[in-house]
């Protein structure tokens, strides 16, 4: 089933084939987690949001039609949920989790400890710098650099013009560079 395209899997899931929906989850769980994690900064929160994303898709399966890429719709939902989460966190007066606690490479046992620590340091600094970007800048950066979307796809997910994606991305990169310099990351 791995070679089957997304909308065929959706059609099978609509017909009651839960294995087809499970295949969609398997296919997108990592990219959706990647997006959510880089947006909210906490692995635990990201996992809950990712889970909610897939459940919402399932809940509305009968309405889905192949008029756009399935991934655009999926990331659109994930994006709404992460923005809701960030809004609620700000409302509660809390921030997102310190990225120093959530970087992923440190625990990789295949790496030598000093190498793993170095990678962990770089990743934590990058995460910290990214968390200082506004959500609107962070989301375009993550969708482009980590989810590999083109400008057209990003524009569909964040619902703005392609030109806006271009300018936001340039600004996000300028701000990220400045943040890394402020954190001493320019020496990395």
């Amino acid at each position: 089933m791995s070679g089957v395209d997304d909308w065929t899997l959706v059609a099978r899931a609509q017909a009651g084939d839960t294995k087809a929906f499970a295949q969609l989850v398997r296919r997108y769980q990592r990219p959706v987690m990647q997006f959510c994690l880089r947006m909210v900064g906490s692995a635990q929160d990201a996992e809950e949001i990712a889970q909610d994303t897939f459940v919402r898709v399932y809940r509305h399966l009968d309405r889905l039609e192949p008029r756009a890429k399935f991934s655009t719709l999926l990331f659109g939902i994930a994006r709404n949920l992460t923005l809701n989460f960030l809004r609620d966190a700000q409302r509660r007066g809390g921030g997102v989790t310190d990225p120093m606690e959530t970087h992923g490479a440190v625990g990789d046992e295949r790496l030598r400890p000093d190498r793993a620590a170095r990678l962990g340091e770089i990743e934590a600094m990058l995460m910290r710098a990214m968390q200082r970007l506004s959500p609107e800048h962070r989301e375009v950066l993550v969708l482009r650099e980590l989810n590999g979307m083109d400008y057209e796809g990003i524009a569909r997910v964040v619902k703005c013009r392609k030109g806006t994606v271009k300018s936001r991305l340039a600004r996000a990169r300028a701000q990220l560079q400045a943040q890394l310099e402020a954190l001493g990351g320019d020496r990395l």
């Binding site: 987690m33 880089r38 990712a50 459940v55 970087h103 490479a105 990678l119 770089i122 990743e123 990058l126």
Partner: peptide, 20 residues
Amino acid sequence: HQVKSLAPPEVHPGFLTRVM
């Protein structure tokens, strides 16, 4: 390149089970 090199997150083995 630095941003792209961020490690992809580990998905908890029970994630799919919980979703399903």
